[in-house]
Design a protein around this nucleic acid. Structure first.
Length: 189
DNA sequence: GTCCGGATCACT
DNA sequence: GTGATCCGGACA
């Protein structure tokens, strides 16, 4: 994928990431998922982890475009962000949901859980694809075992819904969440 | 040094 | 609505 494409503001990149494919390679096997839900976080956004200052935990969000920022939330889930914009600018797109092509063997389906919702949520998709802090700061490339592929077909504007972000207390009115309309793998309507 | 709450999720 | 379970960073 074109590097410059990610070297832009997160709120421009986030809707365009919908329909792209995230690939995770584990022990020689590639697992693919189409991105169906994203959120943008930027330098002047109080909800962004890098808003206050750079720390050891969040430094990856200040990294090169095309790298990733992975953090632990609520003591038990990881969240994956694609770092955007220029280096030293804290800006990233949170990947909130994937439509997985195939379900990895280690994933246990919940009793009432549908197979197409195994990666419906930022914590769930990281669990399904074994994404954790080990990947924090890595570049999206085959060497890292995690990369992006361009979507097959361009989504129409009418297929994308834009709304406010989920689970935050700051910047609650900023409409920087996007998802593919009526897609079963979207985390929440 | 202590302690609160978080870009979550499953279950009631 | 609540519990599970970690740890960064504000100092409640």
């Amino acid at each position: 994928m074109d590097k410059n494409w990610l070297a832009r503001s997160a709120e421009l990149v986030a809707p365009e990431l919908l329909g792209c494919t995230l690939v995770r390679k584990i022990e020689g096997v590639e697992y693919r998922g189409v991105i169906v839900e994203t959120e943008a976080y930027t330098a002047d956004d109080p909800a962004c982890h890098g808003y206050r200052r750079k720390t050891d935990r969040n430094k990856a969000i200040f990294g090169k475009p095309g790298s990733v920022y992975v953090y632990l939330i609520y003591g038990m889930y990881h969240c994956l962000n694609i770092v955007t914009d220029l280096e030293d600018v804290c800006s990233a797109v949170l990947i909130r949901a994937l439509a997985l092509e195939q379900i990895p063997a280690w994933v246990e389906l919940g009793k009432k859980e549908k197979a197409d919702r195994v990666a419906a949520g930022p914590g769930k998709l990281c669990r399904a694809l074994k994404i954790d802090r080990q990947l924090d700061g890595k570049l999206l490339q085959s060497k890292s075992g995690l990369w992006l592929e361009r979507g097959d077909d361009q989504l129409k504007r009418s297929q994308i819904h834009q709304t406010t972000r989920i689970g935050i207390n700051q910047g609650v009115d900023i409409p920087w969440r996007w998802y593919i309309k009526d897609h079963p793998a979207v985390s929440k309507k």
